[in-house]
Structure formats: structure tokens, C-alpha cells
């Protein structure tokens, strides 16, 4: 059962990386990417827990596995909504910066140019 340990630690690191990327990078699309990595690390952790629950002839506990499938689909729809919000924000303000006042700057730049 060594794959539990290997991929479990892998899941932990991926989640940490995603969290770091989501906070540090100021670009919203990179935050969305980081958030997806974070979520994927958590899903992978679920997968590892499911693998530990291998029993009754199944290679893993089917309940967490099914939850992960649902989770991946929901994560995709959330990502799609976030991306659309971001693109609309960019169209409206002319900038994708989330800094206070940056939107106003961007709008002024677009108005001036």
C-alpha cells in the first residue's frame, strides 16, 4: 500500500502549492488556476482515503471516489463561472487588476485612449 503514502504526500504538496499560487499571484486567472490546483490536491487526498478503504474486492472505497467525480464536475462549473466573471470585469474596466482603484485607473486609461 505504498502508493497511499506517496500520492498522499503528493496531494498535500499540490494543495499547498495551489494555495500559495492563489494568494501570491496578483493575476486573477492565475488565482483561478491556483484554486484549481488546491482543489485537485484535496480530491487526490480523497482518492488516497478511498484507496485505504479498499475492501470487499474493490480496489478502493467507491463512495469517496464518486464524491470526487461530482467534485470535479462542480469545480469545472465554478471555474467556468469565475472565468466569465473575470472576462466581463476585464471588458468593463479594461484591466484585470484586483487592486483597489486599479479598476478606475483602467477605465480612465481606456476612456483616454
Amino acid at each position: 500500500m505504498s502508493e497511499v503514502l506517496v500520492f498522499g504526500l503528493c496531494a498535500a504538496v499540490v494543495a499547498g502549492l495551489g494555495l500559495y499560487g492563489a494568494i501570491v499571484d496578483p493575476r486573477p486567472l492565475r488565482k483561478i488556476l491556483g484554486f484549481n490546483l488546491l482543489g485537485s490536491g484535496v480530491f487526490l487526498f480523497f482518492g488516497v482515503v478511498a484507496r485505504r478503504g479498499a475492501a470487499a474486492g474493490f480496489p478502493g472505497d467507491p463512495v469517496p471516489q464518486a464524491l470526487v467525480i461530482t467534485g470535479i464536475v462542480v469545480a469545472f462549473s465554478a471555474t467556468a463561472l469565475a472565468v466569465t466573471l473575470l472576462l466581463r470585469f476585464f471588458e468593463t474596466t479594461g484591466s484585470s487588476s484586483l487592486r483597489d482603484g486599479a479598476a478606475a485607473d483602467g477605465a480612465r486609461d481606456t476612456a483616454e485612449s
Binding site: G60, V73, F76
Partner: peptide, 16 residues
């Protein structure tokens, strides 16, 4: 696949 979850593997490759 290595975690014994081919259904999830398909979902990950296709959607994720």
C-alpha cells in the same frame, strides 16, 4: 488509475 479509480481517471482527463 494507480489509486484504483479508473472512473475518476476518465473524469479527470476529460473535464479536469
Amino acid at each position: 488509475v494507480r489509486l484504483g479509480a479508473p472512473d475518476v481517471a476518465l473524469t479527470e482527463a476529460a473535464i479536469g
